[in-house]
Design a protein around this nucleic acid. Structure first.
Lengths: 378, 378
DNA sequence: CTGTTAGCGCGTTCAT
DNA sequence: ATGAACGCGCTAACAG
């Protein structure tokens, strides 16, 4: 086998036999080796690899052969340095566990499929300061684009992203003043609409049940309150919000401190505990609007346990429409959010813009859907 | 300002005055700019940034000031090229949606926290060929380490990873012949132990219920069959395996083709449909061992719906111990796997080895735990 | 502890 | 359609 790696390039002053030549390279073949073997210039190899049609068929096949023979692997770091452009898209998510974000992620990956885009993912843990740090880090890689969650970046984060030379997409919320582009839906409208549905079904003493509230959850709560107020149910709305009926105490019952990691409260068990507290402190509550589906599932189980009829005695609604909601007995009402679609749209618009296309719309409201099911059918 | 950047290296034939010098750079300050402003050599800046204690206090503070003043952002691509070493860890997961892998991911991120390691994640969709392609891609970035799922890589994937110069950790399964290191547990043992538990509880006609079977699911099924055979229940084991009682037909009922995306079958709704088929085709089944928790939840709801008592008429067991299992009514038995711990251990060992420490153990069995709850309490 | 020199491997620029 | 030369920004290897 012709297995002589890249030595011909340096016929310098070094003695040919003893040549210690402490190369800093890791010994893997470079584009120059491929070029030498194919009998062409390095740049031709470069072109053949990135844009085959720029090279004649003959050279191209020679090059392909050489690539295969040498087992050539392009060095993307060198490429990125030379072109000051990389194929990495930075993605910042508040959580890697919540189904809502994993669905977004799946959309991003599916949408990025078949391209050479790579995803670099970070977990900012619902923490704007952490997010700032991560953005700083990410930018060092000179990514091709960025996807960040929500619209509540710190001023510094925002500045960095504005100065960043590439597409930036904020997702999962809406704002009229995006950094660059935003794709999401209005959490306030979602909360309002589900509450309106509950009221239309005849529920009057509705509790909003949640663990810890993210910025977006707060939007839902606002929507809930507005809808209650609009129906002249504001007083009870406040009274029955779990925020007002001993959440702290309930949290203690979970054996956890009411401080971070607060995300852990978004579990069915939390739902059960919180609902027990509601029954104690606000027995007249006739429906619970849960800030997420896991809580709703827990409430259902607690009702099952206590022999409370759903939807007759208590209406239950969740948020997100995870797959167990439709399969539950009775099926649980919820708000379907288009998480997958959002992720997909985000990476798609980045791809398009990287290809030179123009942004389309800067603000993309994908909406959401009220899934009215048995659990709120009064 | 002494703002003459790197021109001394090439006092060739270029005229000194006219030089338009179309810089290909993007105009951002480089390490040379920082060095110039601080009045030191570039390498000193480099050192100060990477290993502050190698530089005297005076220079270090000067450098820090310059960095801040210029808003210097290191170019990691250049760094990676020069050192042929990057701070990116490649992670290949079969799915980004299944809670089992998102928990792994959370472990990885938590374990990588506070380091400069970046995670580059890919979704190989339970597809070894796709995995091979992704490994090829990843290696182009010259990552610092790699984490891959399972032990069933293709021969080529395996070769690439063996040749890769850095730590490689296979996770979520066990093998006595890892590529480098393996951290996981035996799915066969897990399946066997849960089955033994069911048998010990007095269940005899046990069905193994699953949607599509990954390599690891197959291990669980093997364990199930071994345990059944060992208890002289092998005939029924085969008969009641959902694989033998019309899975295809059941799948059609789901309105889906029995081909990919098969992952979608791991939902509660699938559990309900499959359980209905079991009741029809194998009415004597007295327990179902579900390949995952979502299926088990669906079976529970179907029992609720049909008025079948759990655990008296039917025992239900799942796999993974997602958080709704303990909160269900009745609480659902399952196998707790240490997903988070595995992810955490994987990135931790990579960190350690990057720091020059030796691998510890090559094969790390983190085991699993049988969570016997009401749903199998006969 | 600090600086000098010489690449790392590729892509741009400009010439052919 | 192809090639030569240089530079992208940083760091390893030696000195001092």
């Amino acid at each position: 086998m012709v297995d002589e790696p890249h030595t011909q390039s340096g016929d310098l002053t070094i003695s040919d036999h003893d040549a210690p030549r402490k190369s800093r390279s890791d010994g893997r073949p470079t584009i120059a080796d491929v070029a030498a073997r194919a009998g062409v210039g390095a740049i031709t190899v470069s072109r053949a690899l990135r844009n085959p049609q720029l090279v004649s068929d003959i050279l191209r096949s020679k090059i392909d052969e050489a690539v295969r023979a040498l087992n050539y692997v392009p060095n993307l770091n060198a490429s990125a340095l030379a072109s000051s452009r990389s194929d990495v898209v930075g993605v910042l998510l508040p959580s890697l566990t919540h189904t809502v974000f994993t669905d977004v992620l799946r959309g991003i990956y599916d949408g990025g499929d078949g391209t050479k885009l790579h995803i670099q993912l970070a977990n900012m843990r619902y923490n704007a300061i952490e997010e700032e740090r991560l953005i700083t880090q990410f930018l060092r890689h000179k990514p091709a684009g960025m996807i960040v969650s929500g619209i509540e970046q710190t001023a510094k984060s925002r500045r960095m992203l504005e100065m960043f030379d590439g597409p930036v997409v904020q997702i999962m919320d809406l704002t009229c003043d995006p950094i660059d582009q935003v794709i999401g839906f209005s959490h306030e409208a979602a909360g309002r609409r589900m509450t309106e549905h509950l009221i239309a079904q005849g529920y009057r003493r509705i509790a909003f049940l949640s663990g810890w509230l993210s910025e977006r959850s707060n939007g839902r709560l606002r929507g809930f309150r507005h809808a209650m107020a609009a129906a002249d149910l504001d007083a009870s709305a406040k009274a029955y919000s779990i925020l007002d009926v001993g959440m702290e105490a309930a949290m203690r019952d979970l054996g956890q401190s009411p401080t971070p990691p607060m995300l852990e409260y978004a579990t069915p068990d939390t739902g059960r505990v919180l609902f027990r507290h509601i029954r104690e402190h606000a027995p007249k509550v006739d429906a619970v609007f849960c800030n997420n589906d896991a809580l709703a599932l827990g409430v259902l189980f607690e009702c099952l346990h206590q022999g409370i009829r759903v939807p007759e005695d208590i209406g239950i609604a969740g948020f997100n429409d995870l797959d167990f909601m439709a399969a539950a007995e009775p099926a649980l009402s919820t708000v379907r959010t288009h998480r997958y679609r959002i992720g997909h749209a985000a990476i798609t618009t980045i791809r398009e813009r990287l290809n030179g296309e123009t942004p389309g719309v800067r603000i993309d409201d994908v909406g959401c859907e009220i899934m009215a099911r048995r659990s709120t059918e009064r």
